[in-house]
Design a protein around this nucleic acid. Structure first.
Lengths: 200, 200
DNA sequence: AACTGATTTGACCAACTGGTCAAACCGACG
DNA sequence: CGTCGGTTTGACCAGTTGGTCAAATCAGTT
């Protein structure tokens, strides 16, 4: 079952993952139920368990696919590009992900909030490795005087925090803004913020 | 039962709320169980339900007390103080809350993440009112040229996002930093960030 | 010590949970 | 048309869930 074979398998596995994303991102792992996921996917519960052996397996499959995608925008940060533009472009890529994939963001946020029980190894492994590598690049830029002197790790955290906030705390943001779409304003604000932060 | 009377009632209600905070903040509302809360509080489940009529009631009591406390740092922003200092001090107060009350932060984050089903009214009521009021103050400061021209709502969001990130995503932050306490660095970084953002 | 109201508990319940299984169904291919 | 592997399902299970209740215990007053 590593590779889905038939058309039906492909379709149903996708439907289940989509349903799982919907439910897990809104309720967290423990709060989600197989009945809910099955209903959302338009399948019976035993049928769902025909495609995935357990609730864990669905969640795991979702997280697996997610982390790589989630880090793509950072991976694309080019050590040879113009420093300030590279970082500002990273901010905008990350913000676009919050706009386009808010459920993925919330799935991730739920997992971390609840102590990352099923993803911790990836955090101190894959994630840390990539962040440390890019932090070195940013530190070099700082030392060369091409951007302001900043703590590169906290810079990256601040980019994550700010961009993901618009997906994860969407309800709150909309409640305060009175329903207006926050994204046009956010793009401009974050550009201004980091532009000023990095100016030499 | 509006006011606890006896010593025992006070003690047990407090123990239950403390236990509820622990469990709800780590598991979300649906993921938390009364058995877990009761065990954490050192009481039997029926005894727990002697003090609070339902799981909902415990959660509600926690959120009730929380929102006011949570907004105190913003409420203390003084329209008559020196603009930049006022905002920078607000950032540090908010960051201190993340350091000192991370479970409260996560309780709140869980509720918002999951669509704020039991606190939405307070968001578009009490919260929005206070934010709009303080946003006006900040806009005035901008117009008077005493701080840079910034969107006040997004400024407030960014303060929330950045400070709460250190509590809510604690596991991730620590995984990347390799266990180091992030807070000394965060204080300095956020001061630098907003200092530069607000400079005229 | 006896009383009284506050507190605590064991036993219980119906609804729901993740998961199993054998039987039924289905569509493609000979 | 038959049949055979892939698919779907109803019935079921044991464990857990939030919550109830009557009986037992406790603490403070007289």
């Amino acid at each position: 079952m590593a590779q889905p074979r038939t058309r039906i398998q492909t379709r149903n596995r996708e439907a289940i993952l989509a349903a799982g994303l919907e439910v897990f991102s809104a309720q967290g792992f423990r709060g989600a139920t197989l009945d809910e996921i099955a209903a959302e996917a338009g399948l019976s519960k035993p049928n769902l368990l025909y495609y995935f052996p357990s609730k864990e397996a669905i969640h795991h499959a979702l997280l697996d696919g997610l982390l790589a995608t989630w880090l793509d925008p950072l991976r694309a940060l080019d050590p040879k590009g113009p420093p300030k533009d590279e970082i500002l472009a990273y901010v905008q890529r990350k913000l676009a992900m919050s706009r386009d994939y808010p459920r993925e963001s919330r799935l991730f946020a739920n997992e971390i909030l609840q102590g990352a029980p099923r993803i911790e190894p990836a955090l101190s492994g894959e994630l840390k490795t990539l962040v440390d590598e890019k932090a070195k690049v940013i530190r070099r830029w700082s030392n060369e005087g091409r951007i302001a002197a900043v703590d590169p790790h906290h810079l990256i955290f601040s980019i994550w925090a700010l961009t993901q906030h618009y997906a994860d705390f969407d309800v709150q943001v909309r409640a305060v803004l009175g329903g207006t779409d926050p994204f046009p304003g956010a793009e401009e604000y974050l550009d201004q913020l980091f532009s000023r932060m990095l100016a030499v």
